[in-house]
Design a protein around this nucleic acid. Sequence first.
DNA 1: AACCAGGACTCTG
DNA 2: CAGAGTCCTGGT
Length: 307
Amino acid sequence: MKIMRKVDLHLTQESGQTSQAPWRLINNKYSNMILIDEIPVLLKLSQNSLDSIDVEYELLDENVNEKRIYDEIAKIYDLDFNLNKFYKFLSNDEKLKPSIDFCSSLRLFLAKDPFQSIISSISSANNSIIRWTKSMHKVSSTWGKKYEFPSGTFYSFPSPKTLSNVYEDEEVNNHKYVNNLKACGLGYRANYIKKASKIFASEINPSDIKDMKYDEAFETLIKINGIGPKVADCILLYGYGFTEAFPSDVWIKRIISYLYFDRKDIKVDKVRTFGMERFKDYAGYTQLYLFHYARKSGLMSKLKPKN
DNA sequence: AACCAGGACTCTG
DNA sequence: CAGAGTCCTGGT
């Protein structure tokens, strides 16, 4: 199956969006297992040009309608988002315009499983991309369901219930536990993950969030231990597709300060409201584009405090 | 080998 | 309320 849409799979995968760890690259195909109506489907995506995606997939015993597979891929890569219209919007702002050339065909990388994006985003806080990626794969392979496909073994992301019952530490009451969250390299986030899993296993259904208004969803999330403003916005943007979110961390702060505030030191929270008010429904995409533009253009290294 | 980066929490003023 | 210290670990 071929999907005719403008998208840069590589760029989108490696752009550090915290919905999920990057997919495994097997024989140059981005490979990941997703469940469609509980049926495991292994997706293998590749492309020769940025105008289309070549889709291969593997099934175990049950069949899935190809249209359903198409729809899920379109959702994950936000393929219905109108990039050209967005580029017109970027062109209208001299500060944003240069980002188009650096980020062409970059799209959102959305989670199929919102709970996965919640845990992934919590785990990304104060962390490096390498360590975060390893941790996320370890969590899946430790507690997820195992599926053996011809192309390899894949794991689902564990459910809230499963994660709420795992051990946080290696040792509990003088008992050694090999399978524990800290062994996944999560450090002190292990406790946040366990607590959040408990909440999403009982009080809040992850799918409740998507029916809320942005503000209510944001307020709901930041009440949870380990979820601050940045992580909440990542969850809302990458996990639920709230495109009005403007995840603001130190880097976005430096970039916005440089571009719009004459390098003046502004608070991260101000950056967030500035981005949301100025970019509206494009806030999320603008954040994504600004971040990668800064990274690739050399602006980022220029903005490092030392230099 | 000591030290720093990266968000969120917690404690202090 | 703002500011400082702490958490974990891969990278220098």
